[in-house]
Design a protein around this nucleic acid. Structure first.
Lengths: 153, 153
DNA sequence: AGCAATAATTGGTGACGTCAATAGTTGTCG
DNA sequence: CGACAACTATTGACGTCACCAATTATTGCT
């Protein structure tokens, strides 16, 4: 049913903050800004960081999988991997069984970079969630995760 | 250094979904997409809708206030109000006390438009939050609101 | 009267999401 | 086996958007 009949005003009179979808949109924007600002020094951006972090969880992935898992357009992946390869953080290797596919793997340099910038990422998140205590952060994370897993992929 | 030791306990090995900030970024993107898709028919976009909805909560506002409250750049407000004025949803009126300022007010057409599209907005939000029940939606909204009020403005 | 600050506006730049098209490759089906 | 549909990576184009600098008109300050 409808989320919650909060106030007694006409529905079209609701304020902006009354809509969870809009709050998500706005906070997502802010989160991205903060992340990019913290990565500014390295010359990479949030999208690059997401690719690296995803690659750190698996042995290697064809670009098609990066596209599917990260939600970026295949054409965007090309440029991102180009940049990361130029920085020697990843390598493109031929796929053994399929000559169309190219496997992207994290290099040792990439791993070092992740180790170095991980703390910065955590700091951004905790700065964003400053008004919440630990339990609330946990709750929020759980809810967002469930929403994400249903809607993404 | 040892070659590529994979240890799931190292912090830099966390998956993407482990970071609340990244989840927010991604869900915010998705929320915006859904919103824009639902508004596609009207020719307006989420940003226009946000302006209209904010104007519905007050008698009228100078563009400077729209910029501050909605978080859009002043230069962005110009185009948005232009579009809305062309659609006769808002009017620019001279400010009584300050000839630099122009007060943007919602017209009757704008109010009708809000009435007509409000349900669509709610549908988008409930679609996005489908995996959550009513109580959880409430909880999520409360948490996001607190984060937003601390970080924005 | 002079001058810093402000409101709206214009223009430019780079990042980004989306779509269309292509070359090379694979798998399938008749 | 050979034509054909499906898939991978890639390029290019287009529109949106956030960000910044500059301009004009107006205001408040002193």
């Amino acid at each position: 049913m409808t989320p919650a009949p909060i106030d007694a005003h006409e529905p079209w009179m609701r304020g902006l903050h009354a809509d969870t979808g809009y709050l998500l949109y706005r906070l997502g924007l802010r989160s991205g800004q903060l992340f990019n600002a913290s990565l500014q020094e390295s010359g990479l951006r949030l999208r690059h960081y997401a690719v690296l972090r995803f690659l750190a969880t698996i042995e290697g992935a064809p670009q098609r999988e990066l596209s599917a898992q990260l939600g970026y357009d295949p054409s965007a992946i090309v440029g991102l991997v180009d940049d990361l390869e130029k920085a020697s953080f990843v390598e493109r290797r031929p796929s053994p069984g399929d000559r169309r596919s190219r496997i992207v793997v994290l290099t040792d340099d990439g791993r070092d970079f992740l180790r170095g910038t991980d703390e910065a990422g955590l700091r951004v998140t905790s700065e964003l969630l400053a008004p919440l205590d630990a339990d609330e952060c946990e709750t929020l994370h759980g809810l967002l995760r469930r929403v994400a897993e249903a809607g993404l992929n």
